[in-house]
Simulated assay, not measured.
Amino acid sequence: MILCALIATLAGAVLAYAGHPRQGLLKTARPALCGGLAAVCVAVGAFAWVREFGVGSGIAGLSVNLMLAWVALPYVAWWRRYGHAAERTR
């Protein structure tokens, strides 16, 4: 159940990030598609976290995973855009 919670939470975070107009992972943002799917994934993740650990710890686990993903995603987008270009020029 923990793996399901991690995957659902990460998918929700990635979809929420991909739906934002200033994201850097995709060429164009898709807010209508990504917003609804992100909400469903986060809700499934929240249910899995709460079911596994209880209300307080489950919400804390959900929050920590969402925040870590949202901190890491801009760096992943930067690396995809500029990191690969630096490696190709060597």
Rank of each mutant, 00 (worst) to 15 (best):
M1G: 09
M1S: 14
M1T: 12
M1D: 06
M1F: 11
I2E: 02
L3D: 09
A5G: 05
L6N: 10
L6F: 12
A8Q: 03
T9E: 05
L10A: 15
A11W: 02
A11H: 00
A11Y: 01
G12C: 09
G12H: 03
G12F: 04
A13I: 03
V14N: 00
V14H: 00
V14F: 04
L15E: 10
A16K: 01
G19F: 07
G19I: 08
H20N: 03
H20G: 02
H20E: 10
P21N: 08
G24S: 13
G24N: 13
G24A: 11
L25S: 04
L26E: 12
L26P: 00
K27F: 08
T28S: 08
A29H: 08
A32C: 01
L33C: 04
L33A: 14
C34A: 15
G35R: 10
A38D: 13
A38N: 12
V40T: 10
C41L: 00
V42R: 02
A43F: 10
A43D: 05
V44S: 10
G45L: 05
A46G: 15
F47T: 03
F47P: 00
A48V: 01
A48M: 09
A48I: 02
W49Q: 07
W49N: 04
V50W: 07
R51Y: 13
E52Y: 07
F53Q: 11
G54D: 06
G54L: 04
G54Q: 01
V55F: 07
G56M: 12
G56E: 14
S57T: 09
S57E: 10
I59R: 03
I59V: 15
G61R: 01
L62S: 04
S63V: 13
V64P: 05
V64K: 07
V64D: 02
L66T: 12
L66V: 15
L66W: 09
L68D: 01
A69S: 15
A69I: 06
W70M: 14
V71M: 14
P74Y: 08
P74D: 10
Y75M: 11
V76W: 05
A77T: 03
A77Y: 00
A77W: 01
W78G: 01
W79G: 02
W79T: 14
R80I: 11
Y82P: 00
G83F: 04
E87K: 13
R88A: 11
R90V: 05
